[in-house]
Design a protein around this nucleic acid. Structure first.
Lengths: 133, 133
DNA sequence: TTACAAATGCAACAATGCTGCAAACATAAA
DNA sequence: TTTATGTTTGCAGCATTGTTGCATTTGTAA
């Protein structure tokens, strides 16, 4: 689906910035950082505009944010309609690539008495097929 | 074990700041934020000193850092001698308490061909026994 | 007690992210 | 196509989090 349609579907104004961001994130198969998006996107947008766009797209569940170890922030397209409460991502210790694993199942370890589980964030760290040689 | 002994064991200079930090973190059963530590610790230390102390103690595996959703950073004592590659923590959506679950086992979902798993970070979000009413 | 290495406090700086406001833009209606 | 309106953008400024260099202070072993 094209960025324009996605925005229209969610009742968002079709600005060039938002379209570029969606296109950029959707066309790569892995999660991308703000810097990578800035480089790929045509046109120079203000830092604030990017943050506000990310925020809006996240709120509408079009993209989602993945944070690894506090400092590395990346964004990825949310699989259409998927509202999973289990978020699994792979992170490569070497090239720092981040990939979504939307189909992965997690078994939640038993919680203490009285605790309730709502959602989980799992990051699997290791080496991707390119770096694992 | 006392903070002094822990520091000595790891060949670290026994400064009052480090001792206070270890005591504070060890005496509470859950992870604590920089602010909470600042309040509990006796004596006024510079922000830089805290950061450097955290860094040192983390390097020696005396404490570890847990990050929830990019902004919430907490520290907890590392169970003695435990060098687990599976880190499981519980986070309460309401009171924001963070608790270590050192005994929890995770089943790692199968990775694509050529990928290698090294360690995992799992955060289980929900409601703790106090907030789940 | 002393000498030396290590830790601390301070100032400055960098990165990330947010807010208010005026200007520019997208869109629906005329 | 033009216009009116609400939304988005760019800019300036600010807050938070974390780092670095350097002079001063502290801890430790001799």
């Amino acid at each position: 689906m094209k960025a324009k349609e996605i925005l229209h579907q969610h009742n968002l104004v079709r600005t060039s910035c938002r379209q570029s961001i969606i296109d950029t994130i959707a066309n790569l198969g892995f999660a991308v950082s703000e810097d990578e998006i800035k480089q790929k996107v045509e046109g120079n947008y203000d830092r604030t505009t990017f943050y506000r766009s990310f925020k809006t797209l996240i709120e509408k569940n079009i993209i989602h944010k993945i944070v690894v170890d506090n400092q590395l922030v990346k964004y990825a397209i949310t699989e259409s309609g998927r509202v999973s409460q289990n978020h699994v991502h792979f992170y490569c210790n070497l090239c720092e690539v981040v990939e979504c694993m939307p189909d992965a199942q997690i078994n939640i370890p038993p919680l203490p008495n009285g605790y309730r589980h709502v959602e989980t964030e799992l990051i699997i760290k290791g080496f991707c097929h390119k770096c694992n040689l």
